[in-house]
Write a protein that binds this DNA or RNA. Structure first.
Lengths: 338, 338
DNA sequence: ATGAAAGCGCTAACAT
DNA sequence: ATGTTAGCGCTTTCAT
């Protein structure tokens, strides 16, 4: 059933070397033999074996995709969408993605993903925040690395970033334009560079109109950006400061959690408080009121990462490049003019 | 940097064959040499190359995962969750998943996924409804096939199925228990075996209490189970029959679309009409009112499929097996006693 | 323009 | 109990 390069060579009456050259469209081969060989290939339904090819060429045609456990499991399909974008872009370029997760508390002495050890990938895309130890361990294998929505050690690696600073800015600006002056901010994991940038964007927008914020306006000590933490953060903020008329949540999950807190406490959205999120996850449109947010093109983020990887693989260029993916304000019903 | 089996052999002072046997934990090797070899392996950080291994053993350590374009792209993360389950189960068993999509209108003459042609997978998991032509083409490669949430040509292939019949039954039973007698049904793609089974479950439950339904109670000619179609179906049903007090939607996306129609037409849920869905997707809890539904364990579905594949790969048994995954009634706020 | 042949890293049959 | 050796299917010099 399965035919090999030998079968093709025989069928076409040439050597295996010639077949190989034809398959790679080498131009030292006369168009006549090319035709012959192509006929044989078609006739025998020949396709080069990945393993054999990989063994000699050291190219596997696979790209590894790494994210942490908790990102993999979080309910909002954020990183999953990024993965899908990567996968899509890979497929149209004849690559496959090997997905794996690592522990969020990965340590220096932990083993690397198997696909690296077994030399089963040509490059690695890392999505979201990962422990530095992982990056350290990865270094020795000098495989091309591309980061998405995270950048360890500023500037050393090619990366696809969300324009978080601008996102934070326009979210806050939107609230300001709606007449709000006492604007709160809630976040999980403020040490995450992306979150920190959103925070900066928030501060910048406020400072521009001469408002200096302080601790009374933020809750940024939640450890993880999930709904329960949003609920908790809104609760803390409410106890801390009753003057707030609008909230910017560092992501939609937090925003949704916060909304739940307000509902439970009979605080009306958007009449009593406006709220805007970040990410634009699927559910925003379905909740009531629908959530104003900053749209992040997740599929594109993943696709861009893969494209960057392809470029690196092709040009063998390792010059770190940073691509900023633009965000967009989406106004829905959770924010209101006062 | 990268060490080969040769390096290990040299380091341990044995032959490569011995190293290979040790790696495969063959018991013809004395525990003494095993120790020596293991030391060398550790020292050199040796890991067998996938490509080399695959070339000779014909085992790639990869499983292909196929679904159609439209399933891949649909907004509700249903098949995505199944994929994640498969992926998880694969990983804990030292396999990787290669994901790919095929056109929903795949034809006999279309090429098969590249991972099959290039002999880069040991088996294939197929999720959701796929064209028969694909299955036909796949046959010739006699790779182990496992289906999830779909079974072509009844009984010929191992498959993981949702207990749709029971799901349809208990959904309808729930409405009956709540006092409803005029119960409508909406579906997309009634030719899909799973959907058809849900429909049967619905009919069974009604017949058991002596209610015979007819065309006036269903809209099953929508071509695809998406929200827009749910909206449309609800609209059609409303025009057709004003006596209906409860709706069973063949999946949540349709239910959500239907809810939107009722909202737009000022029909209150659950006061004027009760509605129950099927699947239990993420958003059900967040919409207002929260959607009663039949819970489908999606991650488990995928994990079970992979487990079945592993069993087949291990035992080389190809006896078709059908595993029914149980479903569960989830009562939320969209259904009400009358 | 094409072919011969070495070798990629591993497994497994066969020797010893 | 361990070693020798022949491939697996391909790419890639190096010859011709």
């Amino acid at each position: 059933m399965k035919s090999t390069i030998k079968d093709v060579a025989q069928e076409a009456g040439v050597s295996v070397a010639t077949v190989s050259l034809v398959v790679h469209d080498n131009d030292r081969i006369s168009s006549d033999t090319k035709k012959k060989v192509h006929r044989a290939i078609k006739l025998l339904n020949y396709h080069p074996s990945r393993s054999a090819r990989g063994l000699v060429s050291k190219k596997t045609g696979n790209i590894g995709f790494i994210l942490t456990d908790d990102h993999f499991l979080r309910t909002e399909p954020f990183y999953t969408r990024i993965f899908l974008g990567t996968e899509f872009q890979a497929r149209t370029n004849e690559y496959y993605i090997l997905l794996t997760t690592i522990a969020s508390d990965y340590k220096k002495e932990d083993p690397l993903p198997r696909f690296i050890l077994e030399q089963n990938v040509d490059g690695i895309i890392i999505a979201g925040k990962v422990p530095c130890d992982l990056v350290e361990n990865l270094k020795e294998y000098n495989l091309p690395l591309v980061f998405v929505d995270f950048l360890p050690f500023k500037g050393q690696y090619p990366t696809i970033q969300i324009d978080n600073l601008k996102g934070g800015y326009i979210a806050t600006e939107h609230l300001i334009n709606y007449g709000h002056r006492n604007i709160g901010f809630i976040a999980g994991d403020i040490k995450h560079p992306s979150i920190y940038e959103r925070f900066q964007g928030y501060k910048n927008a406020l400072e521009e109109i001469g408002i200096r914020t302080n601790d009374k306006f933020y809750v940024i000590d939640e450890d993880y950006p999930a709904r329960a933490n949003g609920y908790e953060a809104a609760s803390k903020l409410y106890k801390r400061n009753r003057n707030i008329t609008a909230i910017f949540a560092a992501n939609d999950a937090l925003a949704i959690g916060a909304m739940q807190f307000y509902k439970d406490n009979d605080i009306k959205i958007p009449d009593d408080i406006s709220i805007i999120g970040f990410d634009d996850v699927e559910v925003d449109l379905l909740i009531d009121p629908s959530l104003s947010t900053i749209h992040v093109p997740k599929i594109e983020l993943g696709a861009e990462a893969m494209q960057l990887m392809l470029n690196i693989l092709k040009n063998n260029s390792t010059t770190a490049k940073k691509i900023l993916v633009p965000v967009e304000l989406i106004v829905r019903k959770s924010t209101k003019k006062i």
